[in-house]
Design a protein around this nucleic acid. Structure first.
Lengths: 181, 181
DNA sequence: TGATATCGTCTGTCGAGCAGACGATCGCCG
DNA sequence: CGGCGATCGTCTGCTCGACAGACGATATCA
């Protein structure tokens, strides 16, 4: 769908815990506001939970994919997570340094490097996973348990519906439709 | 809670729509993944919807507060949205240039400038609001309408529970607390 | 009145992301 | 077999945004 390079400038809001204004707008400033608020808090917490991992949350996402998927190449990782290749290079560098992953020549394509997780990397991920899950549960502590479950479910469905739509051929095509038919 | 300056590095993932790997991990990579995915798509779309506003989505948030609240000072705006004061300065600058807002001396405190929206600013906001709402609705198009409503509701409740918990004194204090000692 | 804190502004520095070029390798096609 | 374009990972240089710090103006308190 090629949103072009346009969208940028969304950098993380810094949030140095500075606010504390008494002029809280109160309720319902729209979906945007809720999402932004939730996101800010979420990223703060997850960032804290992943602080001993290189590149914080982003590195966490990378490690996650590396561990759960078949050893991906740097390019596929980059594409999947929306990270630049050049960035992926030194991101992986740091993970190699820490002994969390290894670069291996793909015997089938000697240009590519397969990124595989070390035992240490897996252990670390498991550990951080717990902290992250914890932080997330904490994040939703304002909701009664049943609603949390519902929320997670809806969120997941919404997200998966997106990642599928990502490809214009997507949902339909995957069955048996010739592209642009 | 003072997360210190630590949490950074969360910059927006670029998302040049490059992926299209067939190795979609399938279901349930956790809340993180869903949130990240949803967020990425959301910010791409909202960014597009707010592209003719200075500073994109962030500027949009600012304008929103300016229009809906009593004229805030730059400092309160900055604190509220987690933006640095020095950044807020030139952000407002641009909005003044565009004629969307005005700076007015606060008669009660001549250091502070009250940011007030112009008629033009209000109009523009209304226009962008529609586009954003549109984009958001589009974002959830993968969910049946009833679920969208439920999702919005849950999201909003989760968010508001957070912004209140934000300040430990928060809800209670808002009644009658002297400003910062 | 003087001391201290806050508001908004300006300047300098730092770091991250991105474009572009490069060597190595693949795959294709003649 | 040998050339040709494309791709992978890397490196380099540039650009842009965030943040620290200093500054004048003003408020507040002693």
């Amino acid at each position: 769908m090629s949103m072009s390079t346009r969208a940028s400038t969304v950098r993380k809001p810094t949030a140095p815990a500075a606010a504390h204004e008494h002029a809280v707008p109160g309720p319902s400033l729209g979906l945007s506001w809720s999402l932004v608020a939730l996101l800010r808090e979420w990223s703060t917490r997850v960032e804290a939970a992943t602080e001993d991992l290189p590149d914080g949350m982003r590195g966490y996402q990378v490690l996650r994919v590396v561990v759960h998927d078949a050893p991906p190449t740097q390019a596929s990782l980059a594409a999947r997570l929306g990270i630049d290749r050049t960035v992926m290079t030194y991101l992986i560098d740091r993970y190699v340094e820490c002994g969390f992953v290894e670069r291996r020549q793909d015997p089938a394509d000697r240009r590519a490097r397969r990124i595989v997780a070390t035992a240490r990397g897996r252990t670390k991920l498991a550990e951080v996973d717990v902290r992250v899950a914890d932080a997330e549960e904490d994040l939703l502590s304002g909701l009664p348990p049943e609603d949390r479950v519902r929320f997670r479910d809806l969120l997941e469905r919404a997200a998966s519906s997106i990642t599928e739509d990502d490809d214009p051929c997507g949902v339909v095509a995957r069955a048996a439709t010739p592209p642009a038919g």
